[in-house]
Amino acid sequence: MSHDLVAISANWEHLSGHYKLLNTIGEGTYAKMKWGQHIPTGTEVAVKIVKQQGFANLHRLLLREVSRLKALQHLNIVQLSEVIDNEEPFFLIMEHMSGGNVLDYLKTHGCKKAKEAQGVFRQLVPAMHYCHQRGIAHRELKLQNVLFNSKMNAKIADFGFSTKFSASKLSTICGSPFYAALELFLGHESDGPAVDTWRLGVMLYGVVPGTLPFKGSTWRQLGQQVLQGKYAIPFFLSLKWKTSKKN
């Protein structure tokens, strides 16, 4: 369904009348993702069920995610088909990504070969370039927010922390600290596309050895590693790959 035609409904009856909820495929602090089926067509979908009670500003973040997904139409960005803006809970009906997220894939199947990782990032980099051309920075790129469909094509998800950017710098720090860019640890304002590009680099490192480059239990510890550029390059990587990482 075209993002321009994303339907916005406002009642539980609409959900139960049009969608059959099946297994839970993921769960976070405030949201649960269920595998579902669109009853009239039999199409498989993912239903994001968000409980807003007790989470300040969550509704604003949800509307931001809806706005971004409606504005973005790219083969490697998860598609939104319908929004059910119930007071409690809030539902997002999205395309079903049966391959799960990259982090879970790595846990189950082990790290990817360098050539396979390159194939994944040939999909992600153009998708992020597409976002940046439209003035949108994701700001929460991480392995959990890249999903595989049944054909193992990678798609970017979760635009809740995304923002519109212009010539001015961004001052807000958000997202997982393990992917945070250098300038954030320095306390500087940041450039949206640059922050996303750094996060892509951290992810690229992560899919090959299966671990992230920077580790620490506190923001300070992470910052020290990032500022000093301290990370290990696994012995099994090719010389060409090691050189590209260093550059």
Score class of each variant (00 low, 15 high):
63 L>W: 13
66 V>M: 04
66 V>W: 00
70 K>R: 15
71 A>T: 12
73 Q>T: 13
73 Q>M: 10
74 H>A: 09
74 H>Y: 08
75 L>E: 14
76 N>G: 07
77 I>Q: 12
79 Q>N: 11
79 Q>M: 06
81 S>V: 07
82 E>H: 13
86 N>E: 15
87 E>N: 13
88 E>H: 07
88 E>C: 07
89 P>N: 09
90 F>G: 04
90 F>Y: 14
92 L>V: 01
92 L>E: 03
93 I>Q: 02
94 M>E: 10
94 M>Q: 11
95 E>A: 07
96 H>D: 07
102 V>F: 12
105 Y>E: 06
108 T>E: 14
109 H>P: 00
109 H>A: 05
110 G>A: 09
112 K>W: 13
112 K>S: 06
113 K>R: 10
115 K>I: 14
116 E>L: 02
116 E>M: 05
117 A>T: 14
118 Q>E: 11
119 G>N: 06
121 F>A: 01
121 F>H: 01
122 R>Q: 13
123 Q>F: 02
126 P>V: 04
127 A>G: 03
127 A>L: 02
129 H>Q: 15
130 Y>I: 08
130 Y>T: 12
131 C>N: 02
132 H>A: 11
133 Q>G: 08
133 Q>P: 00
134 R>V: 04
134 R>S: 04
134 R>Y: 06
136 I>T: 06
137 A>D: 03
137 A>G: 14
137 A>P: 01
138 H>I: 11
138 H>K: 03
138 H>E: 10
139 R>D: 06
139 R>G: 03
139 R>S: 02
140 E>C: 09
142 K>V: 10
143 L>V: 06
